[in-house]
Structure formats: C-alpha cells, structure tokens
Design a protein around this nucleic acid. Structure first.
Length: 882
DNA sequence: TTCTTCACG
DNA sequence: ACGTACGTGAAGAAC
C-alpha cells in the first residue's frame, strides 16, 4: 500500500492552538487546574488531519530547547521574543502523553529545531516514494514542498489549513520552493530576529530572484547592476544575506536517530486515550470516541422468526418486549426494516413485518392483557397501524420514562440512551446503520438481528430500575395518567391528519410570486444593483457599506439585518420598508406555501405532523414534518394560509378552543398571590388590572391602550423570568424605568416576588424545579460561575414551572377530551394542539355540542386556586375559526 | 453543519 | 460589571 506520512511541527501548531483559544483560556481548565486549550486545539487539528490525510505513518516533531546550532552561529537567533506563557508550557508534557495515547510518535533532537527533523524525514520519505503532508503554523516550511510533499499551513486557528504544493508556491509568489530560502536570505526574518539586506522586503526580493534565480546569482551579477541605493545595500550586507540564508535553510541531514521505517501509525490505544481525555476533561472528544469505537457487539442469542416457528409466540402470555424497526424518522412514511419480539428467555427477530399479521403475532400485539414493553410507543403505534394492527396495552416505554426522569435524555437513539443508563452492550444506530448518505440497514443477518435483539434486551434490562426511579421522584402518576395515555391520543391525532386544500395554496403561491418579483425589482432599483435579498451578508453590504446606513446591531458574523434593526432604519431609506415587505412575503411563500405543499400526502390530501413528546425541556409538545404549531396568525396576509386548512368532509367545520391567559393563571395559582388571584376571580382584564396597580390608576377608564400594552409586557416578562434590560428592550423604555416597573410590580404582587425568590433558591438547593404534575427540569448551570449561564438558569427556574404546568394542564384536557368524544359517540375529531389551543373538525350539527363540551372539559382539567377560562370559535376553515 | 432570520405560543 | 427576556421548527445562505 502506498505510504502516506503525516509530519507535524509540534511547537508551532501547539502555539497556534494556544493563541487561537486564548480568549477562552478560562474555559479550558481541567479538574486539577491545568490549562488545556492548546492540547484541545491540537487534538482538534489531529482529528482533522488524520481524517483528511489517512496517514499510514506519523510523527510529531518538537524543538529540543532554547539552544540550537543556529543560536551557536548567531546568538541573537530568535532573541527578543516574549517569554513563553506558563499556561502554555505546563501543557506540553500532557500533550506528549496524549500523543502517545493516540498512538502517534513524537521526537526531539538536541541542538536542532522541529523543522530540521521534519526536513530530514521528509527528504528520506520523498526518496522512499512516500506521499508526505507537513502540518505547521510557520510559512517558512513551504520551502520543503515537492511533487510528493505538501505543506499544510494553519490559518484562522488550527482547524483550517492552506495547502502548499510547488504549484501553489509558484502561483502565490512566482518562485520555486527552494527559492524561498533565498528570499529569506535577502529579507531576513524579524520574528526569528535575524536581519537580511537593508531595505529589501518581500517585493524587492521576489523581483531580484526572478531575475537572478538565487542569492548566489544576485551577487554574481551585483557589479553589473546600475548604481542605486539597493546595490549599495546588497554589497554592504553581503555577509548578512549569506548568514540569513543558512539560518533560514531547513536541514535535510540532521543526525536524527528516529527511522522512517519506525513511524507506522496504527490508531489510538483506546483505553489510554479515554483515560487521557478524562484527565483533561475533554467531554466532547470522549463522546466522539465512544461513538466511533463502540466495543464490537456482544454476541446475543436470538431466533429468526418464520412461518414455521411463529406458533412459538403463544408462549408469551403475560408480557412481551417488542421493537419495530423503521429506518427513517418519519414513521408515517418510513419503510419497515424488521422487528424483534420476545422476553429475556428468547428473542425472536425477522426482517419480514408481514409475519406480524399472522394471527398469533397480531393477537399478541393487540392484546389488552399481555402487556408490551417498547421504545417510543407512539412511533410503534403509528407504524403498526399502517400494517393494520392496533397496539394493545403498553406497560413500559423506555423513551418516555427516561425523558420524564431527565428531560435531557430525549435521544431517539436507543443505543445512546441505554448507555446513559448504564447498559453498555447495545451499540448506537449510528454505529450499526451508519449515518448520512451511507446509512443503511446491514445485509448481514447476524449483525442486524443481533442489534435488534440487543435493543429488546436493553429495554428489558433497564425497565426495573427506571420504574423505581420514577416512583422515587413521585412521577409514576405523571407517567401512567398523563404521558402514556397522551401518546395514544397523539398517535390518533397524527394519523387522522388535517386536510389541506392544495389548489387554494397554489393560487396563493402564484399571487405571492408576482408580488415578490415586483418588490424585488423596486429594491434593485433603489439599491442601484441586483443582489440576493435573502442573503443577510449581501443585504448588510448594500445597507451599511453602499448606502452607509447606521449600524445598530451586529451579529457574530457581520451586520444584523433583523426586523427590529430594519424597523429603526425604515424612516431613513425607502428601500428598508420594501425589504421588510419582501422578507415577510418570502417567508410565507417558502415556509408555508411551498413547505406545506411538499408535506401533503398524495394519498389523502392531508398533512400528518409528528408531535415530539420527549423533546422540550418544559414538557410542551413540539411539531415537525410539518410544524403545525407555527402557522401564521398575527399578520393578516400570513393568516390567510389558514384558509387552506379545511375539514375532511363536506358540511363539516373547524372548531377551536383556547385557554385564555393560562400561564398567568398558573402563575397566580402557584404563587398564591392574593391580588392577582382576586383579579382573575373577579373576571378582570388582567393586563388592565396590572396597569392600574403598577401605574397607580384609580379607574379602569384611565387605562389607555399604550399603558395596557406596557403592563402586558411586564406580565410577560414576569413569566419569562424578568430582567430590567430585557423589559426595556421589549417596550423601548430606559433600563431605569423598566427597573421601576418591576419594583412596582413586586410591591403590588408580593406573592409573585416571594415565589420568584423561593423557586430560585429551591433550584440552587435541589438542582431542579418541578411543575404541578411533578415534571422535572434539572438546571446544572444554576451553580455556574459565569454570570450569564447562571442568570439564564435562574430565569429558567422561574419560567419552567409556569410554562410546564400549563403544558401539564392541556395534556390532561386532551386525554379527557379524547375519551369524551369516544363515549359520547360524536363524529368530531381532535386534530391539532397548539400549546394552549385544541383544534377539531366536526359535522356542523355537532358544533353546538362541542361549544359546551370542549370548554367544560378544558376548564375542569385541573382545579387551580383561580378559574381557567376557555374561548371557542368555529368556521368553514381554520382561518374562519376566529 | 452552523448561522441568521422569522413563524408560533 | 456582566449582557439577556421563556419555549419551539424551517428555510436559505455561508462555511
């Protein structure tokens, strides 16, 4: 096999890494107080280069010390340099340990620099027919490039490199790699502190070399040059130039004791590397390592299920573990790859899901007495439903339970989740199936079936402990009475889907298209040139550089062109209003017209969203493929998108009910604040009531719309975990004024103040906060040293019980609602949930019934210290249900 | 992939 | 003195 050698200039790259991550020096400290930023950056570079080069041989060269043969000939060589920071030096021994653990040799040689080791080895490698890549932060090493040796110079930190080949050197400088030495001879090097010829810089040097080829060539011809200052300097500084050339020349014959033949790279010693990463506190590298090198699958016994032995499934009479494999995330459309079923005594597996339709299998799955343990019951239900099977009683859903125990455990990868809970024998899907375009179900039965059997084994093995943990957290009712029944309800809603009138959408689409091209032309005229209006970068260039509008806000990567910025600029240039208009329509067009059209199933003209039940940190649902929880409503133009959401039968209507102010009512409940509760009990307008209190108004008549708007913002701010700065930004007042509002608010609602203090304290003490249904959110950052992280965690502590309890309430209402619909024999169907709102379709005749039934179910879902209020609307489309 | 922007509660 | 409102998903551009 062709040999590929990777040579790394250790000191140079480590130094680059150190300064690239210098502003984060404090973040990169391990448990022992050791700085690790240079090691971290170095390691990133290694991953990068190994992936890019795939070396067969490797070595990292280091400088041996301060004195070298160069300092011997010129004692000011590299003189005058700033002292190496202690935070850097302390990392070097650990870097070398890391290299050893990674199976990479390192070498240093007394009296020589790393360059010379590299130059010598690269020369030997060239002669032996290797392909060599040299990594360094020092451009001088480009003198080593040959047809078979590339020099990769780090730019912008260490993860990005510029590759120098002889052609690239020629292109950039117009000289050959070896002429680089002559150039350095003429110019000298300020960073290494040796002079060349006075007044000769890169430009002049290049010109001379193009004409005369080398330093020697220059001096052979110096007498013939016409009289000039440069000629005088050349003659005068001849010795300096000759010395500089020697100093700049990298040795190709250093007396190294390391042999080219001994540099084989065979990958890391995983165990050592893990220990190393642990010591350094490199969490992300640990994680990466574990996914890459998961221990080979442990053998597991399984039986392939066939028609011949399917009768054996009758042995499962009490409970069974089941897993249905669908290779893509969208279970409404995914193919079926196979399944596994069984218990600790025997795992059965097959690729043929048709077998599930055999009576013995189907009876087992639909049974309400034989309980099922699964991973992701909603996914399983929808998948089975497509095969014509109704999943019966589920006892344990590993995904749901681990999410409830810790909302961060929401990985849809059973392998990773199992590992987190201390079951190491299951590989992740990424390892077994691959990722990206290479993802595929293995043809190898052993491998695929073994993986499926391990999945069942993991579900089964983790069940007892996780259920015990749930019990210990007082979360069993949350699981049994809310999340598990809810999974069922959500599955039915998703399968029902909602009908979308595609011709209506298309008609809107062509209108928007016309409008867009009109506005586009106007914008081009106003800008004086054509550009991509959707590109924040190009737009920023036009507005802030060409048109010189004032920069109001910057992002990490450039000028901000967000709405709030553009609104401030609008009075100054007419183009801005047009851009806002363009953005608005373009958003509706791309996301809602085109996006929604793509999501319609051709079979039934419906969209079938998936609600993610185990994702959010607060207990809310989220909706994907398509997201039906962010269909426009605030602006009329976008709102018309809702006209395309229609009932699935003629003479049916869309019916919707929403909770009014549910979060503030929850706030009044959990804070026990008497004043706030009184307002809700009296049926007052809460924002007006707040306005009267914080602005000390006597009569409701004094509450102007603007005052009410401000009070509303304060109410919202409280729910979000208020800060004076945030409030001031939101309603455009000074920070001081915002501060005063908040003070007044807390004086008027003392219960709220007491609660906010208490919940933050509680979060500090126990590390988590809870909702009324004992949903838990851990807040590790509550102890962070960083003000930012800690403040964020404190705001979260205030917000999560409110947002999360509201989520609990509507979940309970949904379960009861679905039961009511079934009991009452109504045809109405619950289709969507949008956080505080439920949307149904129903025959016209049932609307009066729903108008009573739905609000009564929703407002009685839980008993709070304040009443819950529900409002209902209906109409021929979702748009008309207002 | 990551960033920016913008749609919703 | 620090630099933020809470929770989401999708599209398009740039890397």
């Amino acid at each position: 096999m062709a040999k590929k050698l990777l040579l790394i200039d250790g000191n140079s790259v480590a130094f680059r890494a150190f300064f690239a991550l210098h502003n984060q020096l404090d973040r990169f400290v391990n448990a022992d107080g050791l700085h690790t930023n240079a090691i971290y950056g170095f390691n990133t570079m290694l991953d990068h280069m190994i992936k890019a080069v795939k070396p067969t041989d490797m070595l990292v060269a280091f400088d041996a010390g301060k004195t070298t043969f160069r300092t011997a000939m010129y004692d000011n060589y590299k003189g005058g340099r700033a002292k190496t920071p202690g935070e850097f030096s302390e990392q070097m021994p650990y870097l070398k340990e890391l290299l050893t653990a990674r199976g990479i040799q390192h070498y240093q040689l007394k009296d020589y620099e790393a360059d010379d080791i590299i130059g010598t080895l690269a020369g030997q490698a060239d002669a032996a027919g290797y392909t060599t890549t040299i990594v360094t932060g020092d451009r001088d090493l480009t003198q080593l490039t040959t047809a078979n040796t590339t020099v990769a110079v780090t730019v912008k930190g260490v993860s990005e490199v510029e590759r120098y080949t002889p052609e690239h050197v020629q292109e950039k400088l117009g000289i050959t790699p070896t002429q680089i030495i002559d150039m350095k001879g003429l110019t000298g090097d300020t960073s290494d502190n040796y002079p060349g010829v006075t007044k000769v810089g890169e430009k002049t040097a290049l010109k001379l070399l193009k004409q005369y080829g080398s330093i020697e060539g220059v001096y052979e011809n110096v007498d013939a040059m016409k009289k000039s200052k440069m000629k005088e300097h050349l003659i005068e500084d001849h010795d300096l130039a000759v010395r500089a050339k020697v100093l700049a020349t990298i040795k190709r014959d250093a007396p190294i004791t390391v042999k080219l033949a001994d540099l084989a790279y065979d990958g890391p010693d995983t165990e050592k590397l893990i220990a190393c990463y642990e010591q350094l506190g490199f969490e992300s590298f640990l994680k990466k390592l574990k996914t890459q090198t998961a221990t080979p699958a442990k053998p597991i016994a399984f039986t392939e299920l066939t028609k011949a032995n399917i009768a054996e499934l009758a042995q499962f009479t009490k409970h069974v573990t089941f897993y249905l494999e669908m290779p893509t995330p969208n279970y409404h459309t995914s193919a079926f790859a196979g399944f596994a079923i069984g218990d600790e005594d025997k795992w059965y597996v097959s690729r043929n899901v048709e077998l599930l339709l055999e009576p013995v299998a189907k009876d087992l799955l639909t049974s309400m007495t034989v309980t099922k343990d699964v991973f992701d019951m909603k996914r399983t239900m929808v998948g089975l439903n497509r095969l014509g099977i109704q999943l019966g009683k589920v006892d344990f859903d590993l995904l749901l339970v681990s999410y409830l125990l810790d909302t961060n455990d929401n990985s849809n990868d059973l392998g990773r989740l199992a590992e987190q809970h201390g079951y190491p024998d299951l590989q992740s899907d990424e390892v077994v199936y691959g990722k990206g375009v290479k993802r595929a179900i293995p043809d190898d039965d052993q491998r695929f079936f073994g993986h499926l059997a391990h999945k069942l084994a993991a579900i089964s093995a983790l069940k007892p402990q996780l259920l015990k943990d749930l019990e210990a957290n007082e979360q069993a009712p949350l699981y049994d009475d809310i999340e598990k029944p809810l999974a069922n309800v959500l599955a039915q809603m998703e399968m029902a889907g909602i009908t979308v009138d595609s011709s209506r959408l298309k008609a809107m689409g062509s209108q928007f298209k016309e409008r867009l091209s009109e506005i586009e032309q106007t914008i081009y005229q106003e800008a004086g040139e054509e550009f991509n209006i959707n590109s924040p970068k190009q737009l920023g260039h036009i507005l802030f550089e060409e048109m010189k509008l004032p920069v109001i806000k910057k992002t990490k990567t450039g000028y901000s062109t967000a709405v709030d910025v553009l609104e401030k600029l609008a009075p100054q240039a007419p183009i801005v209003a047009n851009i806002l208009r363009y953005r608005q329509i373009s958003k509706i067009q791309s996301t809602y017209v085109e996006g929604l059209l793509d999501a319609i199933h051709s079979t039934d003209q419906k969209v079938h969203t998936r609600y993610l039940q185990t994702l959010t940190q607060t207990g809310r649902l989220s909706s994907v493929d398509p997201n039906l929880q962010n269909i426009p409503v605030r602006v009329e133009e976008g709102r018309r998108i809702r006209q395309a959401f229609v009932p699935s039968h003629p003479d049916w209507q869309i019916f919707s009910s929403d909770y009014s102010q549910i979060e503030l009512r929850v706030l009044a409940h959990i804070t026990h604040d008497e004043n706030m509760q009184a307002a809700f009990k009296a049926g007052d307008d809460i924002h007006a009531a707040t306005a009267m209190r914080i602005f000390k108004l006597d009569s409701p008549a004094d509450v102007t719309p603007n005052i009410r708007r401000q009070a509303k913002a304060v109410n919202f701010g409280i729910v979000y975990g208020i800060s004076d700065y945030g409030l001031s930004q939101n309603i455009g007042i000074t920070r001081k004024a915002a501060h005063n509002f908040i003070e007044a608010y807390f004086t008027e609602y003392p219960g709220v103040k007491a609660y906010m203090d208490a919940i933050v304290k509680q979060a500090h003490e126990q590390g988590y906060v809870e909702t009324i249904a004992h949903r838990r959110r851990y807040l590790p950052d509550i102890h962070a040293k960083s003000f930012n992280l800690r403040s964020f965690a404190e705001r979260t502590a205030m917000n999560t019980p409110i947002q999360g309890s509201a989520a609990d309430i509507i979940k309970i209402a949904m379960i009861r609602m679905q039961n009511k619909l079934k009991e009452s024999g109504l045809q109405a169907r619950m289709l969507l949930q949008v956080h505080d709102e439920l949307i149904f379709e129903a025959p016209k005749e049932e609307i009066p019934t729903l108008e009573k039934l739905v609000p009564s179910v929703m407002d009685s879902a839980v008993q709070l210290e304040v009443p819950l209020k529900v409002e209902s609307h209906f109409g021929d489309t979702w748009y008309d249900a207002k």
